[in-house]
Design a protein around this nucleic acid. Structure first.
Lengths: 117, 117
DNA sequence: TCTATAGTTCTAATTATGTCGAACTATAGA
DNA sequence: TCTATAGTTCGACATAATTAGAACTATAGA
């Protein structure tokens, strides 16, 4: 019997847990598209977003925001880098890639089964 | 200011919440690849898997399994269809597609920002 | 060194989740 | 109709997650 649970699986459950909270998914959305649509922004703004910029957009306490960012970071979904007084956040593209590969493989498995029909 | 939270977001947080538990992700894995690798299986087995087949592979109580399947079903991730005494489960491909599109759009957003560099 | 700004950690309260066993419903067949 | 099989719902409990406010750390600039 195959074992369908392993460390790989746990990595993904951690990532999905991080994205299973609407505040955190909002953060992920914002970070994927950091400069407001239709507005001009500097290259720097286009690439990352500091913690303080996120607060007003979510309407949660700073401590709560900090907690959520830590969860996203620990799940490998975002990067955090201090620059002076500010901490800039950005999406971790390698984790994003892994997740895309996972869902692509689900789709591929199902297509394979269909081809047996 | 854009609103990054809406019903669409909530649909996805529900889906990620469903996949954030290792038992449920295992179920999803199994359903995406229902016949044991290396074994021969009928077309019927290849396409769906009944609740009773899942139990022994997860080592959880039947009531717990039933609870998890309900969560996956309510999140739109799986289909459940009664056939006689058994209930067969299968992955909901349209939801899978939506999730793939979501992650592809994250990747595309980030690529767009990179092209501004 | 003092102060203001930017974020984090700690504590505590509320709410949600995962789990099982017992009782239940649904179906098929004797 | 009785019985066995397949699965679900309910009740209870333990554990985990979300949240805010207070206290904290880190940095930059006067």
């Amino acid at each position: 019997m195959s074992n369908y649970r392993n460390d790989e699986t746990d990595r993904f459950t951690d990532a999905f847990k991080a994205l299973s909270n609407s505040h955190r998914l909002q953060i992920f959305n914002i970070l994927s598209n950091c400069c407001e649509p239709g507005t001009e922004c500097t290259t720097e703004q286009a690439f990352s977003c500091c913690v303080g910029d996120l607060g007003p957009r979510l309407d949660i306490a700073a401590s709560t925001l900090s907690h959520h960012l830590k969860e996203l970071n620990q799940a490998g979904l975002i990067n955090m880098k201090r620059e002076g007084k500010q901490v800039f956040c950005s999406i971790n593209r390698s984790m994003l890639k892994e997740i895309r590969i996972l869902f692509n493989s689900y789709e591929r498995n199902i297509q394979t089964k269909n081809s047996l029909k």
